[in-house]
């Protein structure tokens, strides 16, 4: 069968892209393969682990369960877009200092989830942090240091 493609326009981390994509390609694959933004990870491809979390039009979403064509006309932010050059986002700094990243594979998604929380609730409680990252699995830290990091970043901001 002939392969159909669709033309989409999308803004990722402030850069505008216009690309031909297959309608069945996931947004995660598009970011990682077509744009080489490999900071966003695949952990399950089923919307259970949150490693592929990005912010699209202001909402935290799992990019593995979105088709690239659905992102037409949308604004996307990935882990690569939250720091500029050597200026780290307070969350990135806090994750580094508090030991909130061990293997680091869940970290980009985790930071995006935390950023989404702080964007909406600048001074969360520990419980709110736990809820906000409930869709992001971490197998290394046991989550305590992540909560510490998010609370510390909230104070910094």
């Amino acid at each position: 069968m002939a392969r159909r493609t669709k033309r989409i326009r999308v803004t990722v981390n402030g850069e505008r892209y216009e690309k031909e994509v297959s309608p069945s390609k996931s947004l995660l694959d598009f970011l990682r393969m077509d744009l080489n933004l490999t900071g966003t990870k695949e952990g399950c491809g089923e919307g259970e682990c949150g490693a592929c979390s990005i912010i699209m039009n202001g909402k935290l979403v799992d990019s593995c369960l979105i088709l690239t064509v659905e992102a037409d006309g949308q604004k996307i932010q990935t882990i690569e877009g939250i720091s500029r050059h050597d200026r780290l986002h307070p969350l990135q700094k806090a994750f580094a200092e508090k030991g909130a990243a061990q293997c680091g594979y869940c970290t980009p998604g985790m930071i995006m989830a935390a950023k989404y929380l702080l964007d909406h609730n600048p001074s969360p409680t520990a419980e709110q942090v736990l809820k906000a990252i409930a869709g992001n699995l971490c197998r290394c830290t046991g989550y305590g240091s992540i909560v510490d990091a998010v609370l510390s970043a909230a104070k910094e901001r």
Partner: peptide, 23 residues
């Protein structure tokens, strides 16, 4: 000393290259 891991900045910025990230 409880120092941050040496590779931590690559990890928090998403620069680290994991298995499926090699290009």
């Amino acid at each position: 000393q409880g120092l941050p891991r040496v590779e931590i900045l690559e990890k928090v910025t998403g620069e680290s290259v994991f298995g499926a990230d090699v290009r």
